[in-house]
Structures are given as C-alpha cells and as structure tokens.
Design a protein around this nucleic acid. Structure first.
Lengths: 197, 197, 197, 197
DNA sequence: TGTTAACCGAGACGGTACGTCTGGTCTTAGA
DNA sequence: TCTAAGACCAGACGTACCGTCTCGGTTAACA
C-alpha cells in the first residue's frame, strides 16, 4: 500500500534498464510500438515495477529524454547574437533529429497535444528552462544595444523556434541551416539595432 | 469482395450522420473518447459501414473538419496588408478555438505527429491551400511595394502561423489579438518596405 | 413489398444456380464456409433473390439435398428381409458418404440440433418417408412370418439406423458393410421368427 | 509473449465464474446466445482472460459440462444386467434432460458435428470412458453367462445408446422409460443367453 | 407494340459476434 | 519492502456474416 515508495531502496538497475529500453524501442519500432509491455520485457523489469515509479508510458519517455538530452548548461554567448541564435536553434533541431532521442521526443510532443498534464511536464522539464536561457541572452542583448530597445522579445522568441515544431508536427521537412540563417536574419531585421543610415 | 465500394450507391444519410457524430463526440468527450464504436453507435450507423468508407477514425474526422471548416474562398485583400494578415491569422485561430471543430482539429494535429500519412492528408486537405492563398497575397504585396523587394516570404509565412501551432501543441495559451498585432508588427518590420524616414 | 412472391414468375436459372453453388461450396470449403454471401457470389445471384425464396441458408441446402438425393421410389423387396435391410442401410450410408451431398447433409444435421424447426423440415422432407418405407416393409415381413409376431418394430427401426447418425455426429468412423451385417444380424436375432431348430 | 500461460498462476475465481456463466447462459438463452462477450460480461471476466485459457466457446462449455456432469465412478452391477442397462441409459438421458447441463451438452453435440477436433475432445472427455464402463460390465456379463457366448457386444453397445443421440439430434421426443425397457428387451433377446426351451 | 408489375443482380446498410490488442492494476513468490 | 513474472479487467480495434433494403435494369404477360 506504499503510496510513495522509498526511493532509497530503488534499484538503480531497473530504472536505467527501463529508460534505456524505452528509448531503444522508440528508435527501433516507433513511439506507438513502444508499449509498456514491450519496454518491461526488453528491460527485464516487471510492469508492476514500472508503474510503481512512473504513472504512464509518457512519463518514462519524458524522464528518459530529459536525462539523455544534452543540456547546454550555459547559453553560448560569443558576443555575436546571430551566431548564438544559430547555435541554439541548431541545438533544438539536434534533439528532433537525434537518432536516439528524436522518435521519443516527437512522440511525447504528439501525446502532449492530447494530454494537458503531460504537456505541462514536458514544458517544465524539457522546454521552458531552455527557452529561458535564450530569453536571458536576448534580454542582455537588448540591454547591450545588440537589439533595438523596443524589441518585442516574447514574440521574437516564439517566432524563432515555433517553425521547427510546426514543421515536425505536420511532417514538413525540418529546417536546414540555410533556413535557420534566413529565419535569424528575418528576426534580426525586425528587432536588430536601429539602422544607422 | 468489393474492395472499393461504389460511391454512387452511398447513402448520404449515413455519411452525414457519421461525420456529425464524430465531431460531436470530440466536442463532448474529447478526441480520444471518440472511438469508432462510439461514433457508430451515436450515428446509428454500423461499424462495417464506417470501415467501408473510411480506413480509420482519423479519416472520418479529417473529412468532417474539412467539410465543416469555413473556407475563405478568397483571401481578403483590403489593400492593407497588416489588416489582411490579422484577418487571416484570426481565421486560423478561429478553427483552433471553434467549439465545434477545435477538439477534432487539434486531435488530428496530434495524431498527425505520429502518422506521416495522416499528416500529408491533413496538409493537403486543410492547410496547404489556405497557406497558398496567403502566399499569393504576400507575393502580390511584394510586387506592389507593400513589402521589401527582397522579403523572404517563405520564412515570413512560417513565422506568422507557426506560433499558433506550437502554442496549441504544448498547451500554452493560444495567442490573443494583441499578440497577433505584435507578431504582425514584428514581421512587417522585417519585411516591410524600407523606411523612408 | 411482395410478401409472397409469385412462384410462376420465378427464374429457374437463379434457383438452380443457387442450389448448385450451395452444394459445391459445402463440398469444397465445408458447410460453415458456405455463407449466403458466398453462395450468392458463386451463383451470380443477388442475396435479395435468395432471401426472397429461402428463409435461410439451411433451407437452401435442405432443398438442394432433397432434390439431389437419390429417392428409392419403392423399397426393395427381394423376399430376403436381411438383404433388403442391408440395401436400405447402405443407401442411407451412401448419402452420408456421397462426396457431393455428404457435407451438406451432415451440416444440416448439425444445424438441426440447434434449430427445432429445421429439424422438423429435415425429418419431413428427407427422413420420415424413407423410414416409413422401411417400416412398411417390416410390417409386411411380420405379417408374412419373416419376423416374430410380437416383434417391436418401432425399436427395431430405431436401432437399425441410429448408430449411423451417432457415429457421424461424433466423428466416429462410419459403419462399414461388415458392421451392417452384424447389426442386421443382431436385430434379426431379436425380432426374427422363433427358432425352429 | 507468453503463448502458454502458466496454469499455476491461474486465478481460480475467474475460471469458475466463466464456467458457471457459460452454463447459465446456455440454460437461460440457449447455446447460440451464449456468446463469448456475454459469458465474459456475466462472469465479470475480460475477454482476454477467457481467450488466454480457452481457444473457443466450445472449449469453455466442454470443460464446464465435464466438470458438472455426474460421473458414476463405478458402473452399477446389481447382478441384474437388464436393470443395470436401464440405470446406465437413464443416466445418459439424464444428462440430455438436465436443466442445467442439457442445453450446453446438446449444443456441444451440434457443434461437434461440424468440428472434428471438438468431436474428439467431446468423445475423450465426456463419452468414451463412460461407454467403456458399460463395455466392461457387458464383457463380464458375457463371461458370467448372463449373455450369449457369441454376443456381439460392440454392436449391442451402439444399439443401446445411439437412439438417444439420434432422437436428440433430430428433435424427436427423447425416449421414455417404457422405450428403454423395450430397447433393452430387444437387445437382451438378441444377445441374451440361449433359450432353454 | 407499348405498359407495367414483378423479378432480378448488385451491393450498401444496421446489427452483432468474433478474436486480438494495449493500458494500467493486482497477485504471488522470492530475495 | 522491493522485485520479476505475469494474470487480470476494461474496452477499442478491424473483420466477417447475417438478413434487410434500395437501386436500376430486365422480363414477360397483358393492353
């Protein structure tokens, strides 16, 4: 009847095996085929154990992706905002394209659309703090004069990464580097420092 | 037997009842609860009939949304591009927010993320031609001098509507009119005609 | 709305094609696979036509078997009762074993077990009058002194042909000629004329 | 996954509830209406569980009848063969007439006719060993001089119980006690000890 | 020779049972 | 107490067959 199992006694082995199996199955057979039964079987872990520690399949994948996703602890600040934006957007694209993480991540995005609670988890654990880093960098840039003083950063942020999500969601080809350059260029035209001419 | 039933003989009653029931169930109980069994039961139609005409639940809803979605036959061209963009974006938002269509449409978006074929159908039947109208309007605007001669329309288009999809997908609040104004303003700053001042 | 179709206007072609198709399907794929849809398709006849003239699949096959079954118009009376019984029992066995009729007939027997009305039809159209012929022959034999005066003909009749049905029903091997001889011999011992020796 | 589930882990509750529900539905609504869905619903058991343990509806009922059928462990041997035969035949008739078992048993008999494998199961689990008891009794009787030394026991056995099956199969009235007396009397005349007169 | 009523082939339809599948819960025995 | 194994309930899935129905087209007797 333990509602909150004692995490200290938890076998780390089963936790890691579960997360690994979940990711692998997403890679090999797709998000839909990564059923809890299949994950348990591959991990050599019982379903009961899985459900003791995670409330649903999506929670497993969320944790797996969270743990495996590269966390750029500090946002790059080379002094060249455009270059930094490109690095940041490339990093996001990298997660979508990552052969190990991509299928799981996009699966989570899909399920989030039908599950507000999962969406919240996803935002909090995978997305918001990354966006916050970007926001910080841009705020600094605005203060530095790298951006116009009246630059609408909230909209600019949305505009920068939303196309990736939309293209993924609708199976349009994901942006390539050229596209990212054009995107950044457009945004910089809009919120860059006022023309000197 | 007959793999491809004869559409001429189709009962219109059952077709309309099925589409209506599918939309209603999405509204009342959500996309996930709109099972084929439930749709058949509510429509007073047999499952065999449904599967005769649609390969899956998503196909029913795609057709239902397609048929019920307001089709702005001609893109508004008031001469004021910013106003036209606002109208267009509001129209898209309207579909997401439509109490009758929204649940079904967002459910389709979610499922598309896991199903490339459905995504293609969705793009072709619901999205691409609407975007094409906007593209046409913007191309004309660029020729008219309403936009900069070197305006990157492809990126601008993406940038204009992608935030709506991303916000919906992650259950962020959908944009309001103020947001749309700021978005359009940002884009116009980037691709609007060169300043004369 | 014709409740009782006019038999005069009936197309003989569709009737014969239906009966033939039904029997063939029983032979080729078994009674269960001889669905009304399959019969209609093979006969080149519409299901509506079939249901206009027959209330159910079993009725089709009943008619088909009835028409195709060899009807020994007169019971053989060679003067040798044992020989006549053997001929009669062989005739019954012949229907079970007939490659053309057997599957349909045994299918009807099976379905009769679950459907009292069909059982009645089967008895009336295929069985009772054949048994009545035997009964008549035996009654005559009793009068002739070929049988004991107190011979229990009703039980003797039952005993003579019931083993065939039971063996068929439970997929025991059907009786062979030796068995029939022994069976007749046993019955004749019981109801034959009193020993003179 | 597990093709052959581990019977040790089986929940006895669901097994018994399933068997009971199957029999009850046969009694209340007939063999045909005892669908797997209905059995599952009444038993409070999921269809998956049923199909894990039984391959088909008939297997459920076979097991249910087998378990519920009274098994006369030892064939009665009162010294009076005719009386013993009557008891044995009455026992068989009892199963057909049993308000609890009859519908299920006759349903199984019907289905056996179309399904050789089921017929084999039915013979092995419900019929053959009962018949073997009778055969043993009669063999002993022949050795004792209760029967003629040359009595054809195989045919006699067939003859004794086949009429019950045939009458049931074709919905003739089942034999009553008088009939059984006459039947036994006929058989005893045929294979009883030689006349002394 | 044209009308017309019934039959006919084709097959869509509502209904219902099937047997399979997955998600999430519960039980058992062992460590 | 936690674990592995896996049985369990719930219920959606897509298929098959049933018997009814609707649609035009075709006969064939009557006008």
């Amino acid at each position: 009847m333990t509602r909150t199992p004692n995490p200290d006694r938890r076998r780390d082995r089963s936790r890691r095996a579960t997360l690994a199996a979940a990711l692998e199955l997403c890679v090999e057979r797709g998000y839909a085929a990564a059923t809890v039964d299949a994950i348990a079987a591959r991990a050599g872990v019982s379903k009961a154990t899985i459900y003791r520690w995670w409330p649903a399949k999506s929670a497993i994948l969320l944790e797996a992706v969270d743990e495996a996703a590269p966390i750029p602890e500090t946002f790059p600040d080379t002094g060249d905002l455009a270059a930094d934006l490109l690095a940041w957007l490339s990093g996001i694209l990298g997660v979508f394209r990552d052969p190990h993480l991509g299928p799981a991540f996009t699966g989570l995005l899909a399920e989030s659309q039908l599950d507000a609670h999962l969406a919240q988890q996803l935002r909090e654990r995978l997305i918001d703090h990354r966006v916050a880093q970007l926001e910080e960098r841009m705020t600094k840039a605005r203060e530095n004069g790298e951006l116009a003083a009246d630059a609408d950063l909230e909209v600019a942020l949305d505009v920068l990464h939303s196309p990736i999500y939309r293209r993924q969601a609708l199976h349009y080809p994901l942006p390539d580097d050229t596209y990212l350059d054009r995107l950044i260029s457009l945004v910089m035209r809009a919120i860059g420092p006022a023309h000197t001419d």
